[in-house]
Design a binder for these strands. Sequence first.
DNA 1: GGTTCCATGTAAGGTGTTACATGATTCA
DNA 2: TGAATCATGTAACACCTTACATGGAACC
Lengths: 188, 188
Amino acid sequence: MTEEASLTPTAWAIMGFLSLAPQSGYDILRQAKETITDFWGISPGQLYPQLQTLANKGFIRPIGEAQGPHARQRWEITENGRQALQRWLKAPSAPLRIRDERLVKLFFSSRAEEPEHPHNALHALKAERQRLLTHIDSALGTLLPEKELPTPSEAAKLGAPELVIRYGAHAARTAEHWVKRVVGKEQA
Amino acid sequence: MTEEASLTPTAWAIMGFLSLAPQSGYDILRQAKETITDFWGISPGQLYPQLQTLANKGFIRPIGEAQGPHARQRWEITENGRQALQRWLKAPSAPLRIRDERLVKLFFSSRAEEPEHPHNALHALKAERQRLLTHIDSALGTLLPEKELPTPSEAAKLGAPELVIRYGAHAARTAEHWVKRVVGKEQA
DNA sequence: GGTTCCATGTAAGGTGTTACATGATTCA
DNA sequence: TGAATCATGTAACACCTTACATGGAACC
């Protein structure tokens, strides 16, 4: 099973979506954009080759025979794939990785020539957090009516996908709140 | 100045550190690991070629002549480099990008065979947040005695680097708090 | 049957990591 | 002078993005 070690989280995520329901690559892209895109983005140029790779490993297979080179193709996960997915879920994870150019600018902006520059950087940061928050809220809105944090007992009843999205929404809202507080009175 | 557009935030960060003080590549690596590594990591394999690139553009220059192929070399930013850095600080930023395998697992863990599996994923998440928090706190400890959020008027007196680190600390602490709350009573 | 959007696929390049190699430096 | 560490450098590869190309499907 050494070949499993070489799969990327992107590949596992693809299998994850197929474990929820058989579907096409395009469907997976749409779902990924609605759900995990904020902490694990998937692009088309990544997805389609990975589908082939996974099929070669026997973890997924096409439903129905291929009809033409660019025709819509649906996929399903195999029993082998399901088992491998379970093993991945229990395996150690790669460390969190963030790339945030805005924070880098904020860090160095004390060296800017204009003294009020940190303010501008904070504003840019605020706008970005606002965007993220709006996106997560809309994703959340389709899943859950209310938006507050669950208590532990409530959390026990929620599925993991809802928990993840709530986590993201809460973190974004907190960051937003903090930025507002530091920037001060101005709106939006 | 179209060549500026092709510089990466990594390159700008290197120039940012050189704008604080002339120093060696190794010094930059150490500083980066103490400060911006959580939102913009820099590896040696990235740093040293970039120093050459920046020198070729005339944005930085070596201090003293090179003494041997692997000898310690200090660098300083040029006037051109300083101006370019200011322009970068005001330019639009690349969108935030996060890669968090733990959250992907949490998202899909509702499909795990064991029903209590989301719990395990949350635990892994908690451990990671704890690690991040500890790191940020130690970085913060060398800069500031107290760890609470600044009020806007206090913030005005702080430099941007302190603000960034406080931001990271607060976000990590909030996430930690949330995870604890959802996971429930168990410790550490 | 032509136009528009859906869906898949590919190629090129950018960005960064890992692992390794090598030369200086320091200190016993 | 030998060993350990500091500091630089490089090569190979992994991963992902972008841009583009192309073929189906649907709708008029």
